[in-house]
Design a protein around this nucleic acid. Sequence first.
RNA 1: GGCGCAUUCGUCUAGGGGUCCAGGACGCCGCCCUCUCACGGCGGUAACACGGGUUCGAAUCCCGUAUGCGCUACCA
Length: 489
Amino acid sequence: MTVRVRFAPSPTGHLHVGGARTAIFNWLFAKHRGGTFIVRVEDTDQARSTRESEEMVLDDLRWLGLDWSEGPDVGGPHAPYRQSERVEVYSAAAQQLLASGTAYRCFCTEELLEAKRKQAEAEGRPPHYDGTCFRLSPQEISARLNMWMPFALRFHVPEDGDVTIDDMIRGEVTWRKESLGDFILVRSDGLPTYNFSVVVDDHDMEITHVIRAEEHLTNTHRQVLIYRALGWDVPQFAHVSLILGQDRSKLSKRHGATSVSQYAEQGYLPDAMVNYLALLGWSTPDGREVFDREYAIGHFSLDRVNPAPAVFDPQKLDWLNGQYIHAMSAAELRPLVARFFDAPWLEEGIDVVKTSVHRLTEFREQLRFVTDYTPPRPSPPAPLPAAREEGGQRPGEGPSIDRPFAIALLHELRTNGTPTDAEGVKAMNERLKIATGLKGKALFMPLRLALTGLDHGPELVRAIPLLRHASELDPAVLSPLRRAEACIA
RNA sequence: GGCGCAUUCGUCUAGGGGUCCAGGACGCCGCCCUCUCACGGCGGUAACACGGGUUCGAAUCCCGUAUGCGCUACCA
């Protein structure tokens, strides 16, 4: 039997990282087993679902690089893949349950149910449906039907409600016949509830493995009862734990970015995102943590998925994203970076600074020494020792520069020109060493300061040629020569 | 309240009775590389929630407690 799995998002906003990880696990599982990955939209909650959200979620999945062979956008043998368009399928199943007596019409209003719930809770009883409508006689039912009273369809939980599943992540989970009240299958507006539609769809779409979030674990109890009442085979279940924020509560907006589109905007790469999310709960058999999709597909298994919830760690994501960026060539990176920041000299710029970048958006800041330049102030005469605070800068440090050094540099650039490569920079350094009598840090720091205006940045043998090339390609970039002049003015 | 799930370094995790005074990764700290900042290399810090069992032996099995989370909706 070939594996068929599905990811079933509710279209109520962008795809969240938790959903993304569930989708990734489903996708990896399907690919690993040579099965089929399906996307199904669960939009029976009309108040919250929108078509725009559906598009966003699908776009987010595409951005992650996941592909599905059946879904609302591509169709498939079990179309439609949008629950709001599948009402006939549900009513057929509902009729079957109604006919067999497992389901019954409930005429209770929401207000009445709410009142009963409150009452039960106040008396310390479980807040379950009291079965009023289950006891209605056929006469009473037809009377209400004749009055056009709206009704919902309720599932009658059998006396022997014991259910055991063998969860692929958690092992055996058993629910004894316990506090489980008769629950709604079809709402009075005719749309099915989650527990009903999910069973009907998973059966209809021949889903073999249901891999979903842990929040659905206890719902499985109800769902298995429905499977049994309908005489259907129960699929394999695998419940993946939740993703938590730093404070160990369920990840939400106040923890910062939670949707994958936000991560895309912040300069994370899809490959890094998939890698990181896969690592949140799953571990590789050989312990490696940086891997591509082929590796993940080849080695994925639900046995290695941890049942405990995991805290989302932005620092590790940053590190991983950096690993991917560092491994890419400047040519590969350029079109991706150009989304955030562009310049004619961008590719060389990327090549020079990429080791200090963890997110694509950081290139802009790392290359600011090219686009922006403020000449360092001249060295102050003799700082007053009394004015120094503990831990303050000592004389001679800080973003300032000696006038004689600036003059020597300007002379060097005018006489020999600005180096165009690392060899040229080294030659220039040798000449400056002789001209100024400085060497090592005493030479390089003032040089860096004079040409970049900053006391840190990429190595000068790379930075100086970049500045020259950039100024030749881009009139907005001040050349090294002009910078040296500015130091003296 | 009831039911269910979970609990190894700050974080992600390896571990499925002895090879574990617990291994890897991120972070943090130190050293090296080095003009600076990164990158990279090397080293260090740091954990089996608690209490009972079972066993010659438990991080690993069982029970309880605590804590966290989920469900208990005409949300999914």
